[in-house]
Deep mutational scan, measured.
Amino acid sequence: AVSDRLIGRKGVVMEAISPQNSGLVKVDGETWRATSGTVLDVGEEVSVKAIEGVKLVVEKLE
């Protein structure tokens, strides 16, 4: 699937994400809805860990 190529890629949070609410991330110039187990603020760099349906699962870049 086209989304599989995104796993491991870096992105930037465009709309804040929390465990309760999905947000938006931009990866390779495309905007995706994303979820995370932690709070991520706009502008934070993330990496794509998995894909669930049409949402990316991301975590903060260390």
Rank of each mutant, 00 (worst) to 15 (best):
V58Q: 00
Q20S: 12
I51T: 06
R5I: 09
V48G: 01
V58A: 02
V27T: 03
G37I: 11
V25L: 02
R5T: 15
S3W: 04
L6H: 03
V39K: 15
D28G: 06
E44Q: 13
L40Y: 04
K26W: 10
E44P: 00
M14W: 15
S47K: 12
S47H: 13
K10N: 08
V54H: 08
K26C: 09
A16G: 10
R5S: 14
V42L: 10
N21G: 12
G53S: 05
V42T: 06
L40N: 03
D4K: 05
E30W: 04
R33G: 05
A34I: 01
G29V: 06
K55I: 14
L61V: 12
S22R: 04
S18I: 12
G43H: 08
S22N: 12
V48M: 02
E45W: 14
M14S: 07
G11S: 02
E62W: 15
L24R: 08
K49A: 07
E52D: 15
K60D: 03
E62A: 15
V13C: 04
A34Y: 03
K60Y: 04
A34Q: 00
A50H: 06
K10P: 10
S22T: 08
W32Y: 10
V39S: 12
I7M: 09
E45G: 10
K10M: 13
S47Q: 11
T31I: 14
S22C: 07
I17M: 06
P19F: 11
D28L: 08
E59N: 07
K26V: 09
A34V: 02
T38E: 11
E59Q: 11
V46H: 01
V2Y: 03
A1G: 07
E30D: 08
L56H: 01
V39G: 07
N21L: 14
S47I: 14
M14E: 08
K55P: 02
G37P: 13
S18Q: 08
S47A: 10
A50V: 04
V25H: 00
M14Y: 13
E59G: 08
E45R: 10
A1M: 10
G53N: 06
L56F: 03
V46D: 00
G29F: 10
S47F: 12
E59I: 12
V42W: 05
I17Q: 01
G43R: 11
Q20P: 14
I17A: 02
E30C: 07
G29R: 06
V57K: 06
D41F: 15
V48D: 00
E45N: 12
I17F: 03
K55A: 14
E15W: 14
E59P: 00
E59C: 09
G53W: 04
V48K: 00
T31E: 13
E30N: 06
K10S: 06
V54Y: 15
D41N: 11
L61M: 10
L61H: 08
K60G: 06
T31D: 11
K60R: 13
E45T: 14
G11D: 01
S3N: 11
V12F: 15
D41I: 11
K55R: 10
K49E: 05
V42C: 05
V58P: 00
G8W: 03
A16D: 06
D41S: 13
V57D: 03
E30R: 06
K49S: 10
G53K: 04
G11F: 01
G29P: 04
V57C: 05
G43E: 07
K26S: 08
V58M: 03
D4W: 03
I51W: 09
N21R: 14
R5V: 14
E30A: 07
I17R: 01
R5D: 09
V54Q: 10
R33V: 08
G53M: 04
I17P: 02
S22E: 13
T35M: 13
D28F: 07
I17H: 02
V25R: 00
L56A: 03
E44S: 13
G53P: 03
I51L: 09
S18N: 12
V57N: 04
S18H: 11
V13T: 05
G23T: 02
K10E: 06
K60T: 05
E44T: 15
G11T: 02
G37K: 11
G37F: 15
E44W: 12
L61I: 10
G11A: 08
V39I: 09
K26R: 12
K49Y: 14
V48P: 01
K49C: 07
G53Y: 04
G53F: 04
I7E: 03
G11L: 01
E45V: 10
E30P: 03
G37S: 09
K60S: 07
V57F: 13
G23V: 02
V13Y: 00
P19G: 07
K26M: 14
D41Q: 15
L6A: 03
L40T: 03
L24A: 09
S22Y: 15
A16M: 14
K60A: 06
G11C: 04
L61Y: 13
S3P: 08
L56V: 07
E15Q: 14
G43C: 06
E44L: 11
G43K: 12
S36C: 06
G37Y: 15
I17L: 05
K26N: 12
R9T: 05
L24F: 11
S22W: 15
V12W: 15
N21W: 13
P19T: 05
V39Q: 12
K26T: 11
V48N: 01
L56G: 01
A34M: 01
T31V: 10
E52S: 10
